[in-house]
């Protein structure tokens, strides 16, 4: 059993609070992605879990054992560093073998495991080279192979595929997911790439400004964002937020009326571009199209609703032009209502 409990972890650098009471539980064998913009504290949290950084307060429990004050090597985990940290004075083989050597594994076993990890990451042909001769993407794969070679119970990865080109990244992503699932590895995967998080993770923790805004399955996070930030960060195009007046449980935009939660006067309608459809007769929410971008699989329409900018996705064959006003119909069960003041979704 190697579940991870992060219990109200706070990290301060001087007076700067990089993490504010972060709590997160990762179940045994689960794959959780930490998703958030640059500087939100992902690396800091990962380094605290690994023991490379000391939390200001809070606890880390791995597999039922409080490891808050244990040295990194006693926590039983492997890690892929954001800047690889591949040893320059060792060959790729020795890099991948490093963890096994530290465990004093037999040479035949070392060879077998290194070759397996290398094959998985497609670095077999560089095994006797030195890292200085490799590209950034190749070094990154060496770092991942080094972590996989020890077959860890807990694996921490800090943007491990960020330097690969798009095609290879897609392939590595799929293979990584399959391997980790098969091995039952408990994984925390840091990324700022939402498609990566969506594709890989059992659950996603969306971080923002040193806090976790929402934890949930990719679908939950996408369909019911907990905050304006999550809605705007996840999905492409990002969720639209339209300020509306909610009176007596009804919000009116043009000649459309939507049922709204009357908890607050200042609320925003959170609407995904793909959850609105063009009404055949021009009725519904009025949308003034400014730019039409054909994306192949769909049309991306940029314009405004009630003077507030919005992006809508339309079928590729829709007959629309820039400058035109169209009507949008919206399924009331698929919209999110946001409290303008707190920025949180109204449940």
């Amino acid at each position: 059993m190697a579940d991870i409990v992060i219990d109200r972890v706070v990290k301060e650098f001087g007076t700067f609070r990089a993490l504010q009471e972060v709590s997160l539980t990762v179940n045994d064998g689960e794959f959780v992605a930490l998703l958030g913009p640059s500087g939100c504290g992902k690396t800091t949290l990962l380094r605290i879990i690994a023991g490379l950084e000391t939390q200001t307060s809070g606890r880390i429990v791995i597999g039922g054992q409080d490891v808050s004050n244990l040295a990194p090597r006693k926590r039983g985990l492997a890690m892929v560093f954001q800047n690889y940290a591949v040893f320059p004075h060792m060959t790729v083989f020795e890099n991948v073998a490093f963890g096994l050597r530290m465990q004093k594994a037999q040479q035949t076993e070392v060879k077998r495991k290194v070759e397996r990890a290398a094959a998985l990451l497609h670095i077999e042909s560089y095994l006797d080279r030195y890292p200085a001769k490799l590209s950034g993407g190749q070094r990154q794969r060496v770092a991942v192979a080094r972590a996989l070679a020890v077959e860890p119970a807990v694996l921490l990865m800090d943007e491990p595929l960020s330097n690969l080109d798009a095609l290879l990244r897609l392939e590595m992503r799929t293979e990584l997911k399959a391997v980790l699932r098969e091995a039952g590895t408990t994984t925390i995967y840091v990324t700022h790439d939402q498609t990566e998080a969506m594709g890989l993770a059992d659950r996603i923790a969306v971080m923002y400004g040193g806090k976790i805004d929402q934890i949930g399955s990719p679908l939950e996070i996408y369909a019911t964002p907990a905050t304006r930030f999550v809605g705007g960060f996840i999905g492409s195009p990002p969720m639209n937020f339209i300020k509306v007046q909610c009176s007596q449980g009804t919000a009116r935009i043009g000649d459309a009326a939507l049922p709204c939660p009357a908890t607050s006067k200042d609320i925003e309608l959170g609407l995904r571009g793909e959850d609105a459809s063009l009404s055949p007769d021009g009725s519904g929410i009025p949308f003034d199209i400014r730019v039409v971008e054909p994306m192949g699989s769909h049309l991306l329409l940029t314009g405004s609703i009630d003077g507030q900018s919005a992006r809508i996705v339309a079928p590729p064959i829709a007959k629309v032009n820039a400058g035109q006003r169209v009507g949008l119909t919206v399924d009331p069960t698929r919209v999110t209502w946001i409290d303008s003041i707190t920025g949180r979704a109204i449940a």
Binding site: A71, R73, M79, P88
Partner: peptide, 15 residues
């Protein structure tokens, strides 16, 4: 020497 090298070694079990 970047401190990551020593940190990586420590993670992988080096005393």
């Amino acid at each position: 020497i970047p401190k990551e090298f020593s940190e990586a070694a420590e993670i992988f079990g080096a005393k």
